[in-house]
């Protein structure tokens, strides 16, 4: 655990908090892609299946407890988000702007996970699948944004926190590479792709939102 890792995780947590705040305050899910939220839920469940393994033989360190608590928060908040979008605020969701075909993303990530993994076991392939899927899970949301051409400021804060958390993970990996000889190519490449997908968004966010303007695509 280092300062980059903890900051990234807290930023990730903050992004979820902002999303829930946006939905509760505006009582609307307008501008939020259900498909992206669904993909994140799949990511968390596929990656954190180890929650259901026996913890009896594990050495119980503080970081283990930290991970368990965070995993439960990520899974439950993403399921709760789906509930808000599908049930509570369903009337404010516009499926006509959320038309990205996620079947292709799911199939591509599953294929890549079956081909490129560290070990060919169910748990490992699912973990790898979740890493690949997380890298591209934001695409339906960015596609929706490009279709509508503008976004509420609070939604852009959510997207910024969500994108930037992975960018800070890049620093964490550089740090760990130097301090612990830590190497994880699957996570590194996926994390770099994930961060790169946000580059246009980051640029417009910096140019407009941070200068007090509304987020509008040029």
């Amino acid at each position: 655990m280092n300062v980059f890792r903890i900051s990234a995780d807290l930023l990730h947590l903050l992004s979820i908090f902002i999303l829930l705040l946006k939905m509760q305050k505006t009582r609307s899910v307008a501008g939020i892609s259900f498909k992206t939220q669904l993909l994140y839920t799949i990511v968390f469940i596929a990656r954190y299946l180890d929650l259901f393994e026996s913890h009896a033989e594990k050495s119980f360190e503080l970081v283990t407890l930290y991970n368990i608590v965070m995993k439960i928060i990520f899974i439950s908040s993403s399921v709760y988000t789906l509930y808000l979008m599908k049930k509570k605020f369903r009337a404010t969701y516009d499926p006509n702007t959320d038309t990205f075909r996620i079947e292709y993303l799911l199939a591509l990530c599953l294929f890549l996970a079956l081909m490129f993994n560290y070990r060919f076991t169910v748990m490992e392939v699912l973990w790898t699948f979740s890493i690949y899927l997380e890298a591209v899970a934001i695409l339906p949301q960015l596609f929706m944004l490009s279709r509508t051409g503008e976004a509420e400021t609070i939604t852009t804060h959510y997207l910024f926190a969500l994108g930037f958390y992975r960018a800070i993970y890049l620093l964490n990996w550089i740090w760990r590479f130097h301090m612990e000889d830590y190497v994880d190519w699957i996570v590194w490449i996926s994390g770099a792709v994930q961060t790169a997908l946000y580059s246009d968004f980051f640029y417009i966010y910096y140019k407009k939102v941070l200068h007090g303007e509304k987020f509008v695509l040029p």
């Binding site: 180890d50 393994e53 973990w127 996570v187």
Partner: peptide, 10 residues
């Protein structure tokens, strides 16, 4: 080792 031990990040 279990997956959770090997992958120590979130």
């Amino acid at each position: 080792t279990s997956t959770g031990d090997k992958h120590d990040e979130l």
